[in-house]
């Protein structure tokens, strides 16, 4: 499959701070690429350099084989969603989208389609400032879709939303990807959030790409068990004696297991602990975070 976005040995500095350090990345057509990393990892800088909003100090950035900083036609087939949805505040959404559709040579039907698709029908005559946080993000997605793009680039699109809205927005991305065969790049600092929607994950830290791969390759069989119990310190001793690495946070025990065999062993051990009279309120298997992945 063809590479729509290519970054080769890209370095970007802000004064003495190196925000991107010799970064190389390729995004293929149809992929949902998640760029994950803690705050300050360089995700937003990577996205901005890819879009030509920032100059690169070194390396090559190509979108559709064109440099987006100098060649505006590189941005012809790209829809962008920023972390804080940012459309002109006082203009009615429909009016704004109408102007944007003319920039991309699209007709009014395109506007109706995207408004229906993102679920903004009935609110299209409101000004951007009158919309709720979730509606604003939907308006931003509608705006990104007006171009009928081949690529959608979304910089932390769910960071200002509540959990329910987050899931809805991520589902919307999945839907768009399937229905329109779009290539999507999403950045996030929450790995579990993007695990279920992405087809490829790039993990960044301190301006470098540490890992790139499919979700299963990245997460492997690492899982985290969260144990809620009455006496975490007694249980901690038992688990540590059996070779488990763990930590206690907020009265809960978090145990990391690297494979299914070890997870099974942990569950058996917990069963024994319960039989021995220790009170356990619950046990959940949760997706690993970035730190666990990097440690693993």
């Amino acid at each position: 499959m063809e590479d729509l976005i290519v970054l080769e040995n890209v370095t970007k500095r802000y004064g003495k701070i190196t925000a991107l350090n010799d970064v190389s990345l390729k995004v293929k057509k149809g992929e949902i690429m998640a760029i994950v990393g803690p705050n300050g990892a360089g995700k937003s800088t990577l996205i901005k350099v890819s879009l030509g909003l920032l100059r690169k100090d070194k390396g090559t950035v190509l979108i559709f084989n064109k440099d987006p900083f100098y060649d505006p036609s590189a941005r012809e087939k790209i829809g962008v969603i920023f972390e804080r949805p940012s459309l002109p505040v006082s203009m009615p959404i429909i009016e704004f989208l109408s102007h944007v559709s003319k920039i991309y040579n699209k007709d009014f039907n395109t506007i109706k389609e995207v408004i229906d698709l993102v679920g903004l029908k009935g609110s299209e005559n409101k000004a951007f400032s009158q919309l709720s946080a979730g509606q604003r993000q939907r308006a931003a997605i509608a705006h990104a879709l007006i171009a009928e793009p081949e690529i959608i680039i979304a910089d932390e699109p769910t960071s200002n939303l509540d959990p329910v809205e987050r899931n809805k927005i991520l589902d919307l991305f999945l839907k768009i990807n399937k229905e329109r065969d779009l290539t999507i790049i999403i950045s996030s600092h929450v790995l579990p959030e993007v695990l279920r929607v992405s087809s490829k994950i790039t993990i960044m830290k301190s301006g470098k790409i540490l890992k790139v791969g499919e979700p299963d390759d990245i997460v492997k069989n690492i899982s985290i068990s969260r144990i809620r119990c009455k006496d975490p310190f007694t249980i901690k001793d038992v688990l540590e004696k059996n070779g488990f690495s763990l930590n206690i946070e907020g009265g809960n025990i978090y145990v990391k297991t690297e494979d299914s065999e070890k997870t099974s062993k942990l569950l058996n051990l917990i069963s024994e602990i319960v039989k021995n009279g220790q009170q356990i309120y619950g046990i959940e298997l949760i997706e690993p975070g970035i730190e666990e992945i990097l440690e693993g």
Binding site: K48, L51, G52, L53, P72, S73, A74, R75, E76, I78, V80, F82, E83, R84, S86, L87, P88, V89, V100, I103, Y104, H143
Partner: peptide, 11 residues
């Protein structure tokens, strides 16, 4: 507010 970055993403 991010409106200028938006302008700069247009072709």
């Amino acid at each position: 507010t991010g409106v200028m970055p938006l302008y700069l993403t247009y072709p």
